[in-house]
Amino acid sequence: MFRSHWHPLLLLSPALVLLALLTLYPIGYSLMLAFTNTQYGGPMTFVGLDNFRDLFSDWFFNQATRNTIVFTLAASLTQVGLGLLLALLFHQPFRGRAWLLPLCIYPMMLSTLVCSSIWKAWLHYDFGWLNNFFDVLGIARVSWLSDPQTALAAIVLVDTWQWTPLAFLLLLAGLQAIPPDIEEAATLEGATSWQRFWHVRLPLVRAPLFLALLLRSIDAFKLFDKNYVLTGGGPAYSTETLSLLAYKQGFKFFHLGTASAIAVVMLIIALVLSLAYAWQVMRRPH
């Protein structure tokens, strides 16, 4: 720990200036709008908590909230779990690793629209690759996107395909940063590979692990384009999310008041969800 009064301020000032310039007004504006009944371009009427009261008594909003939370947990946990597995597989050198690594992280390079389109084709009930493949295997076809029971899971699948690479890369970078001597020491002491994983590697990648969870859950929480392209939020609101709802209110109907109120609710939920991670990541080591 270094001591200086002006160093930290100097180092932080560019970020502070940028963020203040770019977000203070937008955030303040949205916070204010959330308590008004504002149609874009129209007058601003203060309505107190009305927007929130309307939202909480609304079946569609509650459905979207539920979906958003379920999706966030399912997607981020799946992705980080798979990412950790992959990182362990790729940690040790093996033949072809340098070639296979870019292949496995490729999905995340794709534009989300392209990624969603690929999966729209793959998940199609009649023409889709997956169902055609199931025919070959003799498994019954699945109504991936059109069944309210499976639609959200299908979107988790698509998101997992695209974003597991992020968790994978983060965790791989974390593993690679473990000094080799620590692992060697553990091996010399006769630790089995499981013990090595549990007692040596896992504690050392704790920070990247939580970071991956944090980043993926915040992103998953804002899910908007995949369900917009794949299901339009349906069937029967089973894939509607808060972001999609805010988008419709804000950009299709231009009800800025309602849209901002949804955003405020999102903010509060996200803060609660991420405080746990944040606390883990910010906790100083030792």
């Binding site: 963020l19 977000t23 937008p26 955030i27 949205s30 915040i218 929480f221 804002k222 908007f224 808060l242 972001s243 805010a246 988008y247 804000g250 950009f251 849209a259 901002s260 955003a263 999102m266 903010l267 996200a270 803060l271 991420s274 944040a278």
Partner: peptide
Amino acid sequence: VLLIKTLPPIVV
């Protein structure tokens, strides 16, 4: 910073 990252871009 986290708060900023959480805001849906539509709102800002």
